[in-house]
Amino acid sequence: MADAPRSSFIPKQVAQSATPGRVKKRRVFNNISFFGSLFLGVSLVLALGTFGYKYYIGTTLDGAREMLATERGRFSEADFNVVYALNRHLDAAGYLLERHSAPSKVFAALEESTKASVQYTAFELRRTAVGDITITLDGATDDFAKILLQNLQYREDDILMHSSVTGISLGGDEGEEIVTSSGEVSFKVSADVSASDIGYTVPVAAPTPIIEEEIPVVEDAGEEEIPVEEEVLEDEPEPAV
């Protein structure tokens, strides 16, 4: 009896043709499934994150609003108006003080520069819109050359340097068109003085207290002789006399 041939101990292989296709399909399917899940997951995370950020930014907005309200509430409208008014007041005072002029500087310059032989009989000062000053003086002297010298003297002065002499009238001879009563030479001086040259400056020293002198009572005041300060007139001429 012949034994039936025994099958090989090597296990029979599974049919090669069917298996690879299934594996590929499963792998592709797994990839698509994974990608789908991942996409869904990412979109859900994104949605959650966006929602969270929106909540956060809403809170930030509320905080900013609250901070603005707090900052606005630090000063009342009344406080603000008081400070605003004071600021305006100080600015206005500073503006005016800066443009405040001291015409006494013109007189000081005239006293210093006017020669003893020149006398002034009239004075006029006017302030212009920009704070400059124009002055006009009517003067008289006994010699034409003195007017020239006087004019040169003024040109050296910081305040009166822009002065000019006009209307010179030579008097004395009868028949002249312009004749002064005393035969003197009359003239006019006009000067433009810059606002910066006569700007008010705070005096360094305290003003000297005025001591009121007792004026002696004179019975006939009309005949009283008023003493003239001769020495002063000699060296320091007074423009107003």
Partner: peptide, 24 residues
């Protein structure tokens, strides 16, 4: 007058001298 003018310039109430004239 000079003393008066200087004090007027220093016055606490601001007074700007716009015009000044005199004749002897």
């Amino acid at each position: 007058f000079r003393g008066f003018l200087e004090d007027l310039e220093q016055s606490l109430v601001l007074m700007e001298i716009m015009k000044l004239s005199f004749s002897i």
